[in-house]
Design a protein around this nucleic acid. Structure first.
Lengths: 102, 102
DNA sequence: TCGACTGTTCAAGTATTATCGAACCATGGC
DNA sequence: GCCATGGTTCGATAATACTTGAACAGTCGA
């Protein structure tokens, strides 16, 4: 299942409210913080919630991905998660930095 | 009913996720934009939705107020709504500007 | 090729939010 | 004092969102 590409919205289709909503959940925000320093194996994300069911984590990732915040590409038998920082900065200047800096 | 003060959270009790959630709704975000230029009579807010039921508008305001985004004080027979800009800027530097600038 | 590992999707249940009418209340103007 | 104005609260219903188990699929290593 880690073989195919998942859908990612184009930058111009990303909406501010969707981004804000995705970031408004503590668990999702935590994942974003973890990924902010560089790409991470999806399995390595959410280390703070080690007992989080995988279906739940998959859903959290889906919300972040569909909001345009995160990129999620196949990587071996797993997936690699990265922040779409440059694109987000271009679309919503300063937003990500202010959220992550808080 | 416009006589008593409503509850407003202290700055230090304002959480980032609550703020982001409050701003993640288009109708609420619109109200914030309207108020960004200065205090406004509550009746004047949401001019874009003129047929919005007052109970609905009151609820939207409540979410914004409880998130710490807006101040809502009695004013004659109505209420005056204003942005808690300075406080928000102090607590989450750059956040408001990036959201409003988007 | 056969497991073990990593994730996705589906479905069902739960929980949170949104919406809006109705009842109610202060204030201001007459 | 009375009424119209502006807004809150409550209660019910509808709509979203969250959570999780189960079933399934691609990949890697032995």
């Amino acid at each position: 299942m880690a073989t195919y590409e998942l859908e990612h919205p184009a930058i111009e289709d990303i909406t501010l409210t969707d981004v804000l909503f995705a970031l408004s959940d503590p668990a999702r925000l935590e994942i974003v913080r973890e990924v902010a320093d560089g790409p991470l194996d999806m399995a390595a994300c959410g280390a703070t919630n080690p007992d989080l069911p995988k279906s739940t984590k998959s859903h959290l990732m889906k919300v972040l991905r569909e909001a345009g915040i995160v990129r999620n590409v196949p990587n071996g038998r797993g997936r690699l998660v990265s922040l779409r920082k440059d694109e987000l900065d271009a679309r919503f200047p300063g937003l990500l930095d202010s959220v992550l800096g808080a």
